[in-house]
């Protein structure tokens, strides 16, 4: 297990790049899906008003 975490001396580079990569992807995904929820809510409200 320690060997795996150590990554042959490159631990900080490998783990940090994987960490940044997945963290950004998840954040970006969440921003978009939350925005979509918000917009759908507002849109349905205005639609009801028009109807």
């Amino acid at each position: 297990m320690n060997e795996l975490l150590d990554m042959g001396g490159y631990a900080i580079f490998v783990w940090s790049s994987y960490g940044i990569f997945f963290f950004s992807l998840v954040i970006f995904f969440l921003i978009n899906i939350l925005n979509l929820r918000k917009y759908e809510k507002i849109f349905n409200k205005t639609k009801k008003k028009i109807d």
Binding site: M7, G8, G9, Y10, F13, V14, S17, Y18, F21
Partner: peptide
Amino acid sequence: PDYIQGDSMRIMYIHVPS
């Protein structure tokens, strides 16, 4: 691990696709 670059080669698996 790569025989020249060692384990740092593993960054390639996310770098190249992106």
